[in-house]
Design a protein around this nucleic acid. Sequence first.
DNA 1: GCGTAAACGAGACGGTACGTCGGGTCTTTAA
DNA 2: TTAAAGACCCGACGTACCGTCTCGTTTACGC
Lengths: 192, 192, 192, 192
Amino acid sequence: METRTVGRPRSEEARRAILKAAATLVERDGYGALTMEGIARRANVSKQTVYRWWSRKADVVLEALNEAAEATAPAPDAGALERDLRLFLRRTVAGATPRNARMLAALMAEAQLDEEFAESFRIGFLARRREVLREVLERGRSRGELRSSADLDFLVDFVFGLLWYRILSRHARLNRAFADKVAGSLLTLARH
Amino acid sequence: METRTVGRPRSEEARRAILKAAATLVERDGYGALTMEGIARRANVSKQTVYRWWSRKADVVLEALNEAAEATAPAPDAGALERDLRLFLRRTVAGATPRNARMLAALMAEAQLDEEFAESFRIGFLARRREVLREVLERGRSRGELRSSADLDFLVDFVFGLLWYRILSRHARLNRAFADKVAGSLLTLARH
Amino acid sequence: METRTVGRPRSEEARRAILKAAATLVERDGYGALTMEGIARRANVSKQTVYRWWSRKADVVLEALNEAAEATAPAPDAGALERDLRLFLRRTVAGATPRNARMLAALMAEAQLDEEFAESFRIGFLARRREVLREVLERGRSRGELRSSADLDFLVDFVFGLLWYRILSRHARLNRAFADKVAGSLLTLARH
Amino acid sequence: METRTVGRPRSEEARRAILKAAATLVERDGYGALTMEGIARRANVSKQTVYRWWSRKADVVLEALNEAAEATAPAPDAGALERDLRLFLRRTVAGATPRNARMLAALMAEAQLDEEFAESFRIGFLARRREVLREVLERGRSRGELRSSADLDFLVDFVFGLLWYRILSRHARLNRAFADKVAGSLLTLARH
DNA sequence: GCGTAAACGAGACGGTACGTCGGGTCTTTAA
DNA sequence: TTAAAGACCCGACGTACCGTCTCGTTTACGC
């Protein structure tokens, strides 16, 4: 499926500079202080070039995050629910570096402020992550590792609720111990 | 300790008009479109009057929310953990009307964008709600209704994580059934 | 006719700074290089303040010119046509300093580019100057100093045509000798 | 002096499309709204193609005008000054169709805004027109049809001043009656 | 017919200015 | 002292053109 290229090709250099500028600025000054103007300035790029490819600063940050976090990891499938859960959670927690956590928080915030972005964030980000976890749980259920009446969606909410709450309220750390605790609790809930 | 009043007294009318304007505008156009200028305009008040009493639009919304939700309800104490939990959760869920949910989401968003506000939101809002639930749980533990090794903070995270996640991601409703399910799950976790 | 003054009064300082900046910039870089942004910058004033009072850069320049040239001189009335004409033309030519000539040329140019400005320029500038000269001629006619069939409008065109042509094409100087020659020619035309 | 042609020859079609687009746009929206981008768009031509052959939009319009007006008419030479003058003025006035008048006005305006173009406009346009009229007058003088002390340059100024003033200020029509009146007046001036 | 070379369309690029909006502050009169 | 009104400086918004560039494609000529 070849794309007919006509006209000057997009500058990969500019694209990378923009994403990097956005990530750096969010980390340094916070998403609240981020502006399209500032991104362009720091990336040594014209404003038009930013707007040509992204219409919202949130979209720039989302792409920067996806670039950085290689968020497309598939669902672990080691044949045992407990192991898969642990793996999924540890991997997720590991991806939430301070820099990435800041971007995640910013995007969740933006989704509250801009309904249009909220839509794309729900569909293109939140739902995908839910899907991965749900797959793990479904495989576990089909193997009989959790009671058949378990409400998988509720369990997924349980996991992401805890993760997001920590990211957003920042009252405690997201670390491996926390990951394991969440995994353990989920199994408890899934079995009783 | 009486405050010496000199000069023209503060206009209670203006204060109420401002809070109402803020709440209405958030509901109608979303917090993202809220501006101090817009609040003043709609309240038929000068910008200066808004700034004299609140320095951030988030503060206006927070006061509007507290005014509306009378959020200072004390922890229920019916003598039994299960009952107290149900009560607390049903009451909380009932308070999260669409209008209030929208303001809550907005404030959580603002806390991600403005570190100064985040501080006051954590201390003056999030922590207080945590405290109420913790009190309920502690009374339950002292009555021996949950295992002594239970990690109360984790349980509190569990509850608020679920609540906030639903408020922010809006993928499912916050209703009485959900409240009861969360209460039930908490007890399961607290006992096993 | 008192104007009720409410709110902060307009800053006379800012107004003067803007007019001066505009005049200076036109003289230094030419009207073609003049921008609202540049005026604001040089006047140490916000763009908004410029736009609050003038909607076009041509309007700024026009006011600057009127301020500088004190263009509201009344028609000379010394009792003799020849004298009045000489006076009028010498005064006009004297007002066309290089700096003012540059502004005049710019405004005539702008009138060609912006129909809305053209309207106000014709009415508020060109027509007024014509009126003054016409008054001089009419007084002369009523004194019998020119033939009664003389086409005054044509004579006015004759004078301003010569003046504007020199200003715009810059192929020769506008000086006192030229003024006197124009006055002389007009009398020739007016009598034969 | 043959120009070595190597490579693809210039597209006459594109050239014509560009000139036509420019003329049409000036007529429709005014020169002020004319942009190189707009010309290219309307001519279905790439911007580069426009820039390859003209560096200023004024140059495009100038060429469009010369194309349209076939402005290279030689000085009339019928053996009598009055006749030649009438012919010259009638022909000039006839060439100033509304469309052409608009372009002429635009170019004179541009000459006020861009010193570089002013130069080429003075030399390549204004001076040539002056030359034609001067030739007519000189022939008249050598035939003794005007007094020998007549200032020919002033007379040329007189004519073009009137013409340009009407084109630019648009307060009255340019028609045959006007042409004849100017011719008559010139003779009056030239003889007295 | 094959290579060379300029012209062409498309459209991305770094810039600059546009005119507007809101942020906070300040300056006035009135209550 | 508070309030309303509104001007002020500031800086970002999103857009339009500027003039340049980098592509792939087309069209001539000279070998």
